[in-house]
Nucleic acid binder design. Sequence first.
DNA 1: AGTGTCCGAGAGAGCGCTCTCTCGCGCTCG
DNA 2: CGAGCGCGAGAGAGCGCTCTCTCGGACACT
Lengths: 373, 373
Amino acid sequence: MWACGLETHKYPALDEGGITGRVQIPRSGRPTLEAVASVAGVSRATVSRVINEVPTVDPEIVETVRRAIEETGYVPNLAARSLVTRRTGSVALVVSEPPEQRSPLPFLERLFTDPYVGRVTAGAQTVLRPRDIHLAIIPADPPAHDQVVRYVRQGHVDGVLLITSSSADPLPARLAALAVPLVLSTRTTLPGVAWVDLDQAAGGRLAAEHLIGSGRTRLAVVGGPPDAPFGHARLEGFLDGVRAAGLTEPEVVTADFTRPGGEAAVRTLLAARPDVDGVFAANDLMADGVSTALRTAGRDVPRDVAVVGFDDSSVAAQAHPPLTTVRQPVEDMAEAMARLLLAALRQAQEPDDGAAAGGSETFVPELVVRASA
Amino acid sequence: MWACGLETHKYPALDEGGITGRVQIPRSGRPTLEAVASVAGVSRATVSRVINEVPTVDPEIVETVRRAIEETGYVPNLAARSLVTRRTGSVALVVSEPPEQRSPLPFLERLFTDPYVGRVTAGAQTVLRPRDIHLAIIPADPPAHDQVVRYVRQGHVDGVLLITSSSADPLPARLAALAVPLVLSTRTTLPGVAWVDLDQAAGGRLAAEHLIGSGRTRLAVVGGPPDAPFGHARLEGFLDGVRAAGLTEPEVVTADFTRPGGEAAVRTLLAARPDVDGVFAANDLMADGVSTALRTAGRDVPRDVAVVGFDDSSVAAQAHPPLTTVRQPVEDMAEAMARLLLAALRQAQEPDDGAAAGGSETFVPELVVRASA
DNA sequence: AGTGTCCGAGAGAGCGCTCTCTCGCGCTCG
DNA sequence: CGAGCGCGAGAGAGCGCTCTCTCGGACACT
């Protein structure tokens, strides 16, 4: 099975030919550096230099080698390269689902229904693509956590962008323990892990101020699952705003960040407080569901009840009526995550100065006023 | 930088210690096979056998080696392994966007708004996960096509599941040219490429028959972009059904498979044929948009206008009213794709018998009756 | 003219693993 | 009781690349 015969396995007959020499076909059927070198009439090392754009190569030789690469259709073998460089040139965007999430929708459908992940991908790509770093999206529901950890441990990727929505999610800590460059989409106290977050409380406050400012007094909140740290912060910010205005405590209902979840929440809400005139939902998908359910229940939005969402994702503009919402600059945040990851990657490669890891960023939300409030 | 000193670089001092022997730390800081072998007091080859579960190893030795692996925290180095095996143990799910798609929504948001991709992922995972094959999702909008091709050429993955919606998409042919195992989500004539498809025309016919069977006579279609081959087939099947019933030709409007696209189509439609009483939309997202827009225009669904969708994705059940739709067994189809890919992978590994590639499957749609028609 | 210096290309080890080949052992059979 | 056999473990080459070290040649300097 091996390329070399028994008798000559130590020194396989080297092709001495110059520029026009042909070289033995490797086992893979694909040309190797050796083949290109032989065609170009130079050494393997020189071809390697040309490929890696080492500047100290004679321009004429560069040209010859380039032609040889073209002629042979040579493509570097990733495995061989990363065996020595210890880098793969790709990173993973892991979207983790916390355990015990009790949404009726399967994780993967939820993942591919919420525009959030798409926006993160888009933002990350603007940073990674110009640097020619590949991005692989890895969904990680709890049964897949082990497999994902193995994926990263095996060295498929150089670093990980991790999106999680729960502080109870064990995956961040597990990945952090691998000592692989890692950036989280939420504030974290894990040592050596960078993160990017939104000032969630400020966002909640913006929503409260807007509702109150437009004369609403009987408020309610449709929050996310209690273990979602950012959902909690949004809620607290909102409550702060309400308290600051001296209004009575709003009714709080929780849902699962999905459209049907928002609809269901409205039923609970109307039963508890039929006179509600302003609702803050912790994301746009739920806000859309809330809005739909309110209309179904005979309430006009925004005349009878004002609705404010969170995210300013594409569903906000598409909703009926278009949603007033708290804008989260997801793309910018994802860009920041990617940049932090690149920094961590560089650090890992050449640990010049000690543990300068970290360097995290917090973004500021802003209100986008549309028709729903 | 290299692990071995200058003076002993040819034969680095081997640790002769038995079970308790410690071994030099490799450059990566992570334990290697060598280290495990030394701890277990066996040869590298034996450890390799244990890891790869070669059955001819003494159970007692297996146990010793297992313990040594545990103790050292050893994880195989993917690069080294795949350099020799020429396999990586992972496959890509490439979701391609055809060029010149004129949807207003950015590709990535569209991708992560339509539940379709999530269902495909779920289906593929049921086959791949038990076999411990990693799945990386790679979105490929036209500017990223080159990068994706490079990703595959470099050997990041062993095979590709490719989702595309346009016959004008150049990516399938480019990937097929790499001679990497490839399975398409649509019927294709590319040689050596397996595919899985739905009998789209039959689905269209089902929709027509249902509408006609419930007494609708003034029909219309909201089709997908003209270059989407499956959209076209759905349309043709529908038209066939209508013609078979001897009804007048339906009004045909095209949209972009999104919710807002469906809404916009209704405006065109009502202007051209205000008396329409049955609409077939080529996917559920558009059907939901159609339904919403019809209600906004004062038409009751299904009393005034019946609406039939296509896919039976999660939005169908969530819509108001819940959508009658043509069920596409996406998960099953994705499973089939994954299985075909595995077969192709096996083939590529050991090309026993000639070009036995291919072996494709067509699935049959069925009608799911809910409230909208 | 002789020697030192610098620049750029070649030589070759080594990354961590797999896999073939070889060999030693204990067993069965003649 | 010795040759033959089979089974399981070790030895070691090699996968395709990078990168250090070495060396030859062109040039400048004394």
